[in-house]
Design a protein around this nucleic acid. Structure first.
Length: 497
RNA sequence: GGUAACGUGGCCGAGUGGUUAGGCAGAGCUCUGCAAAAGCUCGUACAGCGGUUCGAAUCCGCUCGUUACCUCCA
């Protein structure tokens, strides 16, 4: 199949037409979270952006295999010698098993993303479950002479690799610059031949409790390796799209490319490298290390000193989608409140659209109106082909929405457009909002409160002895499986038994 | 220091040479028992200074400012 989608490829720094290796199949790999804490607003961006990408690819007919990993073996904290990783640190502090920690946060991550209506990936591999694959890849790199064993650890030989390949091709780094700019305070790694070398396997210190056996030592796989090993296992040595946050470009993705090239893959792994930009707070990147993050749970409940109110999951989703994924997006209460209103406006439009019925047999075509609706409808999806410009698609949505609202209030006569155009408009609007942007209706009113309103009227009707109304309310509620109970102490209701 | 971006109206945020982005907030109008919703209309924009061009927010240069990566990070 041939679809005019183009994506910005970090490898080439240009927008390129997207053509899968084996159309209609698309392999998509996205770097998932390191599960040592709750997901924050920043995480939601990668989740939502690549959710929309996979939704759109499917919408236009591709068969997508979406793989997103869970990194649960921990990353090295600082220099390798400290030997303490984030997950372990957290585990000790709380007297928990490391697996207990990662399981806990994995579950919460799933819950949070589900709230955002992010569809679960097709495969969600865990680093801890792919130690064997990672060991195998290390062996391949050793066989190819691009890694070396040192004191029970294995390091990737960056200078040697760079003689055959181009280390830095993704992030635009020049190895000579990196050599001269290596931080002094990261030294103390006499095990490594070059400060640029990175660990493929790290021998565990005696106190390190996350460890696995390997040909070299009891230890754990280095950062970067899990993604190379798992993407290869489930998508092959070469696949279509690799996604992740911009902050992973270097060194993480750069190292992934090097590992894939240096192993028996001999490829850059992915053909299109796609990076989403960061969410900022007052212009500064939101991140765990900076401590300026707001978790999704805090957003949903409003429990954070910077939040003036709670923001629903769909508000957050809409907020993310109103910006292009490659731009930074600045958080503020005002921006979230604006997103909330915008989201509700779109959903009200959907509700209206569902109510509209075309007046059959009453066609009274107006060429101009017909043309206008056709044009506005056609513009809905077009921006998505231009590097997934959801912001522009949403703008198109609002433009069409004005007409839909006019149809509803009667200013725009439905019969002036053909039924075909009407149906097309309705189908496309729904498809964009529900299927591709992945927005859904959020219940704002709960049944209990609505019932209390009805019971209020019931009580009033009884007091005024308007028994016709009393009986009607009872009958209506009974139709909903609810019975009213008049007791001496007051009015209550129950589920009909 | 190296590399890469960015700077759009009160706020958020599209837009890469000429046409209304859009949302929120604000003003006015229509509709309305009141209100809401909705529709219509309106306003202050493209950091600064040069340059290229018939024409630049959009290309080039310089200045100022902000950020990201170079360490774990979506």
């Amino acid at each position: 199949m041939n679809h005019p989608l183009s994506l910005y490829n970090t490898l080439t720094r240009t927008k390129e037409p997207f053509t899968p290796l084996e159309s209609p199949f698309v392999g998509l790999y996205v770097c998932g979270p390191t599960v040592y804490g709750d997901a924050h607003l920043g995480h939601s961006r990668a989740g939502v952006v690549f959710d929309v990408l996979s939704r759109y690819l499917r919408y236009v007919g591709y068969k997508v295999r979406y793989v997103r990993n869970i990194t649960d073996v921990g990353h090295l904290q600082n220099d390798a010698d400290s030997g303490e990783d984030k997950i372990q640190k957290f585990a000790k502090a709380h007297q928990l098993e490391p697996m207990e920690v990662v399981h806990h946060f994995t579950n919460r991550y799933h819950e949070d993303l589900a709230q955002l209506n992010v569809i679960s990936p097709d495969i969600e591999p865990r680093a801890s479950g792919h130690i064997i694959e990672q060991i195998q890849m290390i062996e391949e790199i050793l066989e190819n002479g691009l890694a070396y064993v040192s004191h029970g650890s294995v390091y990737f030989d960056v200078p040697a690799y760079n003689q055959q390949h181009n280390y830095g091709k993704l992030s635009g780094r020049v190895i000579e610059d990196l050599m001269t700019n290596t931080r002094e305070d990261l030294e103390g790694q006499e095990e490594k031949r070059s400060p640029l070398d990175f660990a493929l396997w790290k021998k565990a210190s005696p106190t390190h409790i996350m460890r696995w056996p390997s040909p070299w030592s009891e230890g754990f796989p280095g950062w970067h390796l899990e993604c190379s090993a798992m993407s290869r296992k489930y998508l092959g040595t070469q696949f279509d799209i690799h996604g992740g946050g911009l902050d992973l470009m270097f060194p993480h993705h750069e190292c992934e490319i090097a590992q894939s090239q240096a192993s028996h893959n001999h490829t850059d792994a992915a053909r299109y490298w796609v990076h989403n930009n960061m969410i900022t707070m007052n212009g500064k990147k939101m991140g765990k290390s900076l401590g300026n993050f707001i978790t999704l749970r805090e957003l949903f409940t409003g429990e954070h000193e910077l939040l003036q109110q709670a923001y629903s999951p769909m508000t957050v989703r809409f907020f993310v989608l109103q910006a292009h994924y490659r731009s930074t997006l600045d958080f503020s209460n005002e921006a979230l409140q604006a997103a909330r209103k915008g989201y509700l406006k779109v959903m009200n439009g959907l509700r209206i659209l569902n109510q509209l019925t075309y007046p059959a047999g009453a066609e009274n075509l107006d060429a101009k109106a017909e043309e206008e609706i056709k044009k506005l409808t056609a513009e809905l999806f077009v921006p998505l082909n231009d590097d997934l410009n959801t912001a522009k698609s949403i703008a198109s949505l609002f433009n069409l929405l004005k007409k839909i609202n006019s149809m509803h209030t009667g200013g725009f006569k439905l019969e002036t457009i053909s039924q075909e155009t009407f149906e097309q408009m309705r189908t496309q609007y729904r498809a964009l909002v529900l299927d591709v942007l992945g927005l859904k209706i959020e219940q704002t009113a709960d049944a209990q409160s609505l019932l209390e309103v009805v019971l209020g009227f019931y009580k009033e009707a009884k007091e005024t002895k308007d028994y016709g109304k009393v009986d009607a309310i009872r009958a209506q509620l009974k139709g909903q499986g609810i019975v009213i109970k008049d007791m001496k102490t007051g009015i209550d209701w129950a589920y009909e038994e």
